[in-house]
């Protein structure tokens, strides 16, 4: 599982978070999740300014197979969304941890990050998923 970037934290429901400057964090879904979903065809994102709450549904990704909720891994206010996904949702399939990011959130409480899984633990989780 060396392809999971070391600077990410994960939620069991397969969202990743990367802590950035100024108390902000970038959020996406994991490469494992996009693999399970198959080709993505539509993404419904929150709006800039929306408040999201850790554990609540805040976006929807739809693949050729099904629609799937994205749960907020942290609480805060949306400061940016990945507009490019509207026309190219397949970017998530191609680069889930990079250009396929979903949104950036200004954290209410940076301590929430501590509750999330580190890459090794997430790798173990999906390993067990596959067996």
């Amino acid at each position: 599982m060396s392809d999971i970037p070391g600077d990410l934290k994960f939620q069991k429901s397969h969202e990743w978070v990367r802590l950035e400057d100024a108390g902000q964090a970038r959020v996406g879904i994991s490469d494992h999740a996009q693999g399970l979903l198959g080709d993505l065809v539509y993404v419904e994102l929150p709006k800039v300014g929306d408040k999201i709450e850790a554990g609540s549904g805040c976006a929807v990704v739809e693949s050729v197979k099904a629609a799937s909720d994205v749960y907020a891994p942290v609480s805060g206010k949306i400061v940016a969304v990945n507009e490019a996904l509207a026309d190219k949702p397949e970017t998530i399939n191609e680069d889930a941890f990079g250009d396929g990011w979903l949104f950036v959130v200004k954290l209410d409480n940076p301590d929430e990050m501590d509750a999330l899984l580190v890459p090794d633990d997430y790798a173990e989780l999906i390993e067990n998923d596959e067996h």
């Binding site: 198959g38 080709d39 065809v41 050729v64 197979k65």
Partner: peptide
């Protein structure tokens, strides 16, 4: 088989 990689 559902797909062999990419359904599209």
């Amino acid at each position: 088989p559902l797909n062999y990689g990419s359904q599209i």
